[in-house]
Amino acid sequence: MDTTTAGRVLRSEWTKITSVRSTVWTLAAAVVVTVALGMLISLLIRNTFDELSTADRITFDPTLTSFAGTSLGQLAMIAFGILVVSGEYSTGLIRASLSAVPRRGLLMAAKLTVATALALAVGTATSFLAFFGGQAMLGDHRTTLGEPGVLRAVFGGGLYMGLIALFAMGATWMLRSPMLSFGVLMPFFFLVSSILANVPATEKLGRYLPDQAGQRVMSVVEADDRPYGPWGGLGIMALWVIAALLGGYLLLKKRDA
């Protein structure tokens, strides 16, 4: 009985996600932007490689370079996460949804499962496309999946995309309004986080922000003295995600719909 209920709610959420254009468009944008920008930057680096400093050449990370589009492409993933959840709240649809599925935890879990599975699938495909596309542009400076750490970085790139979408979903479940969610999350991940991670005064703390820590998984060459490794970084990001989801769940349980 309970598995039947869960199965029904999952199917309903799958229909919800696939029956609106915005989710399809944001996911498509995530692929195109990440891959195209990664290829473009890879091409630029290849053409200017000889002008790089010796230090930069020694620590050159062809894998990470091909993921250069992530900083922008992730915004589309975040938009996907926001839209999936705020679509319930912008119109009062949440009342119809909770009337149909009064167990709030079940409704949330089903929506997160479906949306995260989709984000992970698209994220992983994006990651591989960005890698191969970027390497093709890098020419002589390219690397291959067989090199140590590279396959981990490419799969990690997919996981990163899934986690960033999941973080956006958790945060939106707390913020509810699409305007508010976009207004908070977009500037944060586009500007604030990278400023905090690069300004000397906040650098040490900034590295523990979800995106800054999570992106470590995509690098193969250790360029700085971060206190965590690739999986450690992704783990820190996962903790942020868990916190966001927990906050979203508790508020969903407690608040009037």
Binding site: R21, G92, L93
Partner: peptide
């Protein structure tokens, strides 16, 4: 229950809106 007229996603067709509800309750 009919609580408010606009409790639908503006971008999901009438048919698909009902489909989501129908699927969730078998």
């Amino acid at each position: 229950a009919l609580l408010e007229a606009r409790a639908v996603h503006p971008g999901r067709t009438a048919h698909d809106h009902l489909l989501c509800l129908a699927q969730s309750n078998g």
